[in-house]
């Protein structure tokens, strides 16, 4: 199936997309995120299904402390701003802005994860509330854990971008990895809004 050296084919300009159109990879990323979003949709559906089935007990965390989740929400929303800042930077060709934005975002992401870990450990150690202690525990740790996993993946993705940015891999024209990481990060943030509402705020209204 190999091709003789020097054989030539004709290439159309539009074969690789028009300038100004979304790139192939952008579309790929969109559908990938859509599929990921459905993972969360299913998880949330399962959460609600089980919550409704256990209608008698209210699914509220033992410590019912809203400070940490609110702080974490603020952190994540802030990180969405900073990652947008990074993206705008590289779209203008400003690598410095990119590096600053990415660093801040990764830092905020790490803070979020520390906050989550703190909440988890205090729940498990102090309240004896764990994945196996009750069905609510199973649902709570799975949902927040899945989201935490995605934050971790997103942060690693951003970190890879950061390393590459310091090595000068990105320019105004070529920075798809950054764009993808940015999309992914925004996605993770939006998911958090659903998670936090479902887990912390909905029980308040019951």
């Amino acid at each position: 199936m190999s091709v003789a050296h020097g054989e030539q084919v004709r290439v159309l300009e539009e074969e690789h997309g028009q300038v100004g159109e979304r790139s192939l990879n952008w579309w790929g990323m969109v559908f990938f995120i859509a599929s990921e979003a459905l993972i969360f949709a299913n998880l949330i559906a399962a959460y609600l299904y089980l919550e409704i089935r256990n209608n008698n007990d209210i699914w509220q965390l033992p410590h019912s402390n809203l400070f940490l989740p609110l702080l974490n929400t603020a952190i994540l929303l802030g990180s969405s701003v900073s990652v947008h800042f990074a993206g705008t930077g590289i779209r203008k060709g400003n690598v410095r802005q990119l590096i600053i934005g990415l660093s801040v975002t990764i830092f905020l992401g790490a803070c979020f994860l520390v906050g989550l870990a703190y909440e988890w450990t205090s729940l498990i150690a102090d309240e004896h509330f764990s994945i196996s202690s009750s069905i609510f525990g199973s649902a709570f740790f799975t949902l927040t854990g899945f989201h935490g996993l995605h934050v971790t993946i997103g942060a690693i993705f951003l970190a890879v971008c950061l390393v590459r940015a310091t090595k000068g891999h990105f320019s105004k024209q070529q920075h798809f990895a950054v764009q993808a990481a940015e999309m992914y990060w925004h996605f993770v943030d939006v998911v958090w809004l659903f998670v936090v509402t479902l887990v912390y705020f909905v029980p308040l209204f019951r």
């Binding site: 091709v3 020097g6 054989e7 030539q8 084919v9 004709r10 290439v11 159309l12 300009e13 074969e15």
Partner: peptide, 8 residues
Amino acid sequence: ARGRLVNA
């Protein structure tokens, strides 16, 4: 179909 020739 216009375009340019390139190596396969």
